[in-house]
């Protein structure tokens, strides 16, 4: 369903009005993203991913996590991001999330840190032209290290609605 450009702003308003949240930050294609730290089940550096023929590009495959079958999302493809030219290694770090009843793993380039961010330090993502990335971002935090996008995991688990991002997220 096509969404008006300001939908992301409305999503931002969903955030609680006060308090401080802990977030796990990570890098994908040179951009910084975060998910609530409580959503993270574990981090895996050498998961064996079995590909799924005829699956959408953003589904990298399935991972066996001690008998639990976990879909692996290639975040870079899912968000339609172009990696910086100096980066050629594909993402290999699994950030396994228990955010939803069905676990999932996000393929990221690097896990950064757990950061504490006051709820009121997030701002809505305002996009002139919505992309897969802006639709998946609930809010953005402008910190000392640059922008940190808070991912909406439920949205990430939905199939991408746009083919390729026309305007990728700014890095700073």
């Amino acid at each position: 369903m096509p969404q008006p450009p300001h939908t992301s702003a409305d999503q931002g308003a969903v955030l609680p009005a006060s308090g401080v949240g802990r977030y796990a930050a990570f890098l994908v294609a040179g951009r910084r993203f975060a998910v609530p730290a409580t959503d993270v089940a574990e981090v895996l550096r050498d998961g064996r991913v079995n590909t799924v023929p005829r699956a959408p590009e953003s589904l990298a495959g399935l991972l066996n996590l001690r008998g639990r079958i976990v879909p692996v999302i290639d975040l870079q493809k899912r968000l339609g991001l172009t990696p910086p030219t100096d980066q050629d290694d594909p993402a290999t770090v699994h950030l396994v999330l228990q955010a939803t009843e069905e676990w999932c793993s996000l393929l990221v380039d690097e896990i950064l840190d757990v950061v504490e961010i006051p709820d009121n330090a997030f701002e809505p993502v305002v996009a002139q032209q919505p992309t897969d990335a802006t639709e998946a971002a609930r809010a953005v935090h402008a910190g000392a290290d640059g922008l940190l996008y808070l991912l909406d995991v439920k949205q990430v688990l939905r199939p991408a609605t746009r083919s390729r991002a026309a305007a990728p997220l700014p890095t700073t």
Binding site: N50, P53, A55, L59, G61, L62, P71
Partner: peptide, 23 residues
């Protein structure tokens, strides 16, 4: 279950973990 991302493909009824740990 292979999950909500695999089901819409329409070709798979589910998944299983094999003896060697592969899916």
């Amino acid at each position: 279950p292979a999950g909500a991302l695999v089901a819409p493909i329409g070709l798979y009824a589910g998944a299983t973990v094999m003896g060697d740990g592969g899916v």
